[in-house]
Structure formats: C-alpha cells, structure tokens
C-alpha cells in the first residue's frame, strides 16, 4: 500500500474513487449494473462508453506529449473522419449494407491517417513548433469537414455503422471494447516494442538521443500519425452515436479534454515519461466529472468551472516550482519500480 501511495497513479485514482463515491451519496444504486437482454447497463457502463472517444484520442495524445509535442487538430480530424464515412455511405445506393459501412470506415480512418502524416511532416521535417503546425489543421479542418458534407448534417441509416457506438458484444458496449482494444494495442506497441522507450528518450533529451543514433524524426512522425489514427476512430464513434456527421459540433473541444486527460494521468506537458494507464484514469475522471455534476444538482454547463479547478490543481501538483513554494514536498525515491504501462 505504501508503494502505491508513492506511485504516480495514486492521486488520479484517489480523485476518481472520490468522485465515484460522491455519486453514491446521491444515487445509492450508482454502482449497480443490471443485465438486460444479455447486455450490461448501469451508470458505470455509461461512463465507460461515453468516455471512449476522449480516451482514444487521449491515448494518442499521450505519445505526442511524451515527445514534447501537442496536437490541437484532433477534434477537426475526428470531424473529418465522421464526415468522410457518412458522406460516402449516404451517397451510395446500398447505404445500409455492412460492406458499405466497412469500406466507409476504412476510408475515413485512411483519410485521418493521411492528415496525421501531414501534421507529422510539418513538425518533424519542417521543424515547425507542434502547437502552430497543428493549429493550421485545427482551423482549416472543420472547413474541410463542411466541404465534404456540403455544410449539411449528413444522416446515415446503416445498422453496422450505428453499432460502433450503441452495439453490444459479449454484453459490453462495442465502443468500450474498441477503446480498450486500442489501449491494449498502444500498450503493446509501446511497451512490447522499443517504441515507448525511444519516444521517452526523444522527449527527455533530444540531443543525447540523436547522438545515440535514435531516428528522432521518424519517431516524432509516427506519433502524429498514430494520434490522427485514434482521432479517426473517435470521429467514427461520435458520428455513429447520432447516425450523422455534424462537421461543426463533432469532436468540439475534444482536443482539450484529451490533453486534460493526459495531464491528469500524470504525464508531464514537458515530455518524457508517460503513463497510458494514467491517461485511461484521466479520461474516466473527466467523464465521471461530467456525470457527477448534474447528479449533484449543479447545472451541467458549469462542468467547465470544475475542469478549470482540476487543471490548476493538477498543474500545481506537477510544477516543481509550485511544490517548492507551497512546500508540498514529496521525497524523490532513489529507486523506482518498473515503468508504468
């Protein structure tokens, strides 16, 4: 237990647990999960399902931030992905067939990946600061999405497509399964290959990494492609939830929520060591917060106020300067446990 309190995950997990318990005081059956038609239902399941798009993007964002970067364009990429899929399906005669949906979704993700290649090119090859490089697509992206949908909210009627967010497999919502699958893939990709270590090395000391022969440019490029891939899938989930592509509203502010999830999860915006599990908890925390506020009888819109407080508290906890000023000193352990997955 003592080793756990020293872990970087201690505070995020504690915050999440407290939030969940807070719900219990107002809604006694908050933790109950019931089975209906072989599907699981309940508040916790809802939280998991609704957090899926944010979690997906936050996973990619974790890697980007670990390289000292940031990607502001993910919301726009998600919107474009949804627009591509819906427009393609709506424009074909066999709109509702499964094959059509699969082609549409593949196309959407491919477009998203291309956009990631673009961002990665600006950052790693041209050497433009990440925040500016991705601002370009953040601004133009929603325009592109509207161009694709011709400014309409494109609705589709395809059962396979709508299952992406509302369907169930093995009693669990598909959205959750997709998010967890991407989480698992990311974890494997970074911790079972050498990618995670190389990303951290580049984020901690780019010059030392270069001298050790690390291809920093390739690594940086890969993470921007990966976050765009995640954003593409998240965009499909968002579009599937409403069976429509809304170029303006889809994924609005999701980049901020994703960054927030990463920061809450203990990954520093200054790059370096990252924690995917922390990000998972961070994304849950944000969604739980959004659920808790109306439950407590506070207007849902004030969610922003609480997020502001969370951001400030988390940043102050992470800032060495602030910790020194506020004298919340935690001793640095001489040895740490193995890297957090």
């Amino acid at each position: 237990m003592r080793s756990f309190t020293k872990s970087n995950l201690f505070w995020p997990v504690l915050g999440l647990v407290l939030l969940l318990l807070l719900n219990l005081t107002k809604t006694p059956d908050f933790f109950s999960i019931r089975v209906q038609d072989g599907h699981l239902y309940g508040s916790l399941i809802d939280i998991l399902r609704n957090s899926a798009p944010t979690l997906l993007i936050a996973l990619g964002m974790t890697l980007v931030i670990a390289t000292r970067g940031i990607d502001l364009s993910v919301g726009a990429v998600a919107a474009i992905s949804g627009a591509v899929a819906c427009t393609y399906m709506a424009g074909s005669p066999d709109e509702s067939t499964a094959g059509r949906a699969i082609v549409a979704m593949t196309m959407a993700v491919a477009v998203a990946v291309l956009l990631g290649v673009w961002n990665g090119f600006l950052v790693s090859v041209l050497g433009i600061q990440p925040i500016i490089a991705t601002l370009v697509l953040m601004t133009a992206g929603r325009g592109l999405a509207m161009l694709i949908t011709d400014g309409q909210i494109t609705t589709v009627n395809n059962s396979l497509f709508s299952k992406v967010s509302t369907g169930f497999v093995l009693g669990l919502p598909i959205a959750i399964l997709i998010a967890l699958a991407v989480f698992a893939i990311t974890a494997v990709l970074t911790r079972r290959t050498a990618l995670g270590m190389l990303i951290e090395a580049v984020g901690i000391n780019p010059e030392a990494s270069r001298l050790a022969g690390v291809r920093a440019r390739t690594i940086t490029w890969i993470v921007y492609v990966f976050v765009a891939f995640c954003a593409g899938i998240a965009g499909l989930m968002i579009a599937s939830n409403t069976n429509a592509a809304d170029a303006n509203a889809a994924g609005l502010f999701i980049e901020l929520d994703a960054i927030l999830a990463v920061v809450i999860g203990g990954t520093s915006l200054a790059g370096g060591r990252f924690s995917l599990t922390g990000t998972l908890i961070g994304a849950m925390f944000i969604q739980t917060l959004a659920t808790t506020i109306p439950t407590m009888g506070i207007p849902a819109e004030t969610n922003y106020l609480f997020k502001a407080v969370v951001v400030i508290v988390v940043c102050l906890l992470q800032s060495p300067k602030a910790r020194a000023v506020l004298a919340v000193r935690r001793p640095t352990p001489l040895l740490t446990k193995g890297s957090a997955a």
């Binding site: 190389l198 951290e200 090395a201 901690i204 000391n205 030392a208 990494s209 022969g213 370096g272 060591r273």
Partner: peptide, 17 residues
C-alpha cells in the same frame, strides 16, 4: 544521459536505436 530512464534503458539505447 537520458536522466529519467533506467540504467538498463540507457545502456541499450544505441543498440536499440
């Protein structure tokens, strides 16, 4: 040195790269 990585990771960095 890559300060925030372990001895092991620092050792194999060049080979891994």
């Amino acid at each position: 040195v890559i300060e925030d990585l372990s001895i092991a990771d620092n050792m194999v960095l060049a080979m891994q790269a």
